[in-house]
Design a protein around this nucleic acid. Structure first.
Lengths: 199, 199, 199, 199
DNA sequence: CGGTAATCGAGACGGTACGTCATGTCTTACA
DNA sequence: TGTAAGACATGACGTACCGTCTCGATTACCG
C-alpha cells in the first residue's frame, strides 16, 4: 500500500499532497459516516483527487481504510512503561487504548475491516501484522517481565492469556452489550492477572 | 422479521414454502460464498422466489442472514447439563459451540452481522437478543450454580466473567490469529475458572 | 368487457356497486393524473375493490379505460339536428365535440388508447367500433343529406372527407401545436365544405 | 439529449461508438417489437452498453426513441422541388412521406411518443421542434409560393390548411381505420387544394 | 331451509423492468 | 510518468406494477 514513493526515477514524482489528502478524507469519512457510507467516489471528491490516483496506490477500499486508520491507531502503540508489577503494566497498557476505542466510533470501522479479513487472505495478514500483533507483542513483553520476576509461572499459556486480555475488549467494542469504561478495564485486568496465577 | 404470519385473517396466507426456501437458500449461499458475494437476486433465484417476496418480510440482507443463521446456530442453545463443577459446566457449554464455529465458515457471516450491528440500532438489539444474550444466560446460570455451591465468591463480577469466557472465542473466530480447537477451549476454561477465583 | 352480468344463473350476482366504483375510480384517475400514473392497484384501492374483481371483468388496463371513458365521451354522440345546410350541420356536429375535448385533458387518455391500438388487434377493433365509427357515421349522414340536397357531388370521396374533418381535430388534440377553439372549428368546417366542392 | 459532446475538454471523451450502438439498437427494437416491448435493459444488452451509459445521455425511453427515430425520419425532410403548381408541390411533399410511414410500423412508435408528449412539457416542445414543425415549414413554403403565384388567396388560413394536410395522415396512421396509400394521398391533396380555394 | 356456486375483500405470490449507485478500468489533456 | 476529469462495463440495489393465486366471508338460487 502507498509504498514505493516512485518506482524508478523518471517522470513526475508522486504527489505527497494527494496521498495525505486521500488518507485524511478517507479517515474523516470512515469515522463520521461509517464505512458503509464511504465510496471511492466520495473519497476522491472530498480529497480533490481523481479515482485513478487512489486506485494507483491502494488496491481496494479496505486497504485504504487500513492505512487511513493506522496513524490514529498507532498513537497508543508507544512502548509501555515498566511499573514493577503485572497488574500495573497491564493497566498502563490497556486503559489508554480502551479510552481511545471508547472515544470514537471505531467499532464501525473495525467491523468493516473484520468483514474484509474474512474473505481476503492477503488483507488478513496485513491487518494482523499492523493492528493485532504489535499490541500482542506489547502484552507479551509484559507477561515475559512477569515471568522473569517470578510473578507468574514460566509455562503460562501465553496466547490464551493474550486472548483473555484482548478478546473481551473487542467483544464489547463490536457487540456493544456492555460499556467500555475504566471499571471494565480494572475488572478485566484483575481477571487476567488472576487467570495467569499471579494471585 | 418474518414474524407476523398474517396480521388479521383475510387475504392469502403467507407461503410457508417460500419462507423456508428463502432461509435455506440464504443460509447455503452465506456459508458457501460468504455474505459479501451473496446478492438478493441470487437468493431469490436459488429459492425460486421473487425479490419482492423477500423484501416483504425482511428489510435487508443482514436481517435475512440473522434469520437464516438462527436455526443452525440455535442447535447448540439447548440447556446445559449440571456436571457438578464450574469447570465441567463451562467445558460442556463452550466445547460444542466452539466445535460448531470451527466446523464451518461462520466467521464471514458473523463479521457481516457485526458490521450491520454498528450502524443499525434496531438490528443490534435483535442481534443481541437472539445471538448474544441466550448464550450469556446459559453461562450466567452456570456461574450462579457455582456461587450457590460456594465454589466462587457471591460478588463475582458476572458481566466481566462472561466477557472473559466469550470474548476470546469471538476474538479467534474473527481475527483468525490462532486456531479454534479443543486445546484452546481447555486453556480458556482453565483461565476463566482461575479468574473468578475457583482455584 | 364488463358484459355478461352472470354467465349462468346460480351463484352470487355481480356487484353493480363494484362495477360503478371501478369505472368511476378509473375515469377520475385517468383524467386527473394521466393514464401513465394509473395502476390497477391504485384503481382497486380508490374503488375499495380487490384487483381480482377488476381482472374478472376487464382483461387489461386499456379495456378498462375504454369503458371508463365511454360514458363521458358518449355525451356528445347524440343525433345531430338537420340545419338545412352542410356547413351548419358540420358546425353543429364538430363544435360541441371540440369544446368537450378542449375542456379536459383527454389528450393523455387518447394517446394511451392509441398506444394500445397499435399493438392489440382486438382492442383496436373495439376502440374503432365504439369511439371512431359512431362519429364517422354521424358525419356520413350529414354528407349523405348534402348529396341528397344536391349541395355536393354524389361521387364525393366520403372516407377522405371524413378524415379531412376529424384528422385535424385529433392532430391538434394530440400534438398541441395549435389551440382547439371555436375559430379553429369555423375555419376547419369552411375548409372541409370547400374541399368537397360545396363552394 | 445526447447533446453536450464534452463540456470543457478534460476527461475521457464520450464514446461515439456507444452513442451510435445505442441509437441503432433502440431504433431496431422499437420498430421490430414496438416501444411497449422495449426495455432499457434490452437496449443496453443489444448495444453492448451499460444502462448507466444510456441514462447518462438520455433521461427516458421516450427521449431515446426521439433521437433513435430522428435519422430515419429525417430522410424525407429534404427540400421539396418546385413543380410549378400547388397540387404538384403538395403531392411531391406528401407522397414520399406517406410511403415511408406505410412501409414500417411507425404508428407504434408515434403513439408512444405522443403519449410522452401529453405528460412532459419539455419533451413536447422538442418533439414538435424536430418532428412537427420542420414538415409544417416545408408545406408553409409551398403555400407561400402558391400565394406568390396567385393560385390561392393571400389571406389563406395557413395553420388550418396545414392541419387539413397533415391531420388526416396522422389520423390514418394512428387509428388504422383506412389505408395509407397513394390513392388516399391523391384524394387528400385534391381536397386540400380545393379547400384553400385553388379550384 | 340447507346446500351449492359464483362473487367479493384482502393481500401474498412469481415475474419483469425500473432508475440509481458503487466498483474498478479506461481514455483524454495537462503538468 | 503522474494527475484531474470523467466516461465506461458491470452488476446489485430496492421499488413498482403486472396478472395470478389463495384465503375466508357473502350472497343468491335451487332443490
Amino acid at each position: 500500500m502507498n509504498t514505493a514513493p516512485a518506482a524508478g526515477r523518471r517522470g513526475r514524482p508522486r504527489s505527497e499532497a494527494a496521498r495525505r489528502a486521500i488518507l485524511e478524507a478517507a479517515a474523516q469519512l470512515m469515522l463520521e459516516a461509517g464505512p458503509g457510507e464511504v465510496s471511492m467516489d466520495a473519497v476522491a471528491e472530498r480529497a480533490g483527487v481523481s479515482k485513478a490516483t487512489i486506485y494507483r496506490w491502494w488496491p481496494s477500499k479496505e486497504r485504504l481504510a487500513l492505512d487511513a486508520l493506522y496513524e490514529t491507531w498507532a498513537e497508543v502503540q508507544r512502548p509501555v512503561p515498566d511499573t514493577g508489577s503485572l497488574h500495573g503494566d497491564l493497566l498502563a497498557l490497556i486503559r489508554p487504548w480502551v479510552r481511545l476505542l471508547a472515544s470514537r466510533p471505531f467499532g464501525r470501522v473495525m467491523a468493516a475491516l473484520l468483514a474484509a479479513v474474512q474473505s481476503d487472505q492477503e488483507f488478513a495478514e496485513e491487518y494482523r501484522e499492523r493492528f493485532v500483533e504489535p499490541r500482542r507483542d506489547q502484552a507479551r513483553d509484559i507477561f515475559a517481565r512477569a515471568i522473569a520476576r517470578g510473578e507468574i509461572p514460566a509455562d503460562t499459556e501465553m496466547e490464551v492469556a493474550l486472548d483473555l486480555l484482548y478478546g473481551p475488549v473487542y467483544h464489547r467494542l463490536l457487540h456493544g452489550h456492555q460499556p467500555l469504561n475504566d471499571a471494565f478495564v480494572r475488572a478485566l485486568v484483575d481477571g487476567v492477572v488472576a487467570a495467569v496465577g499471579a494471585g
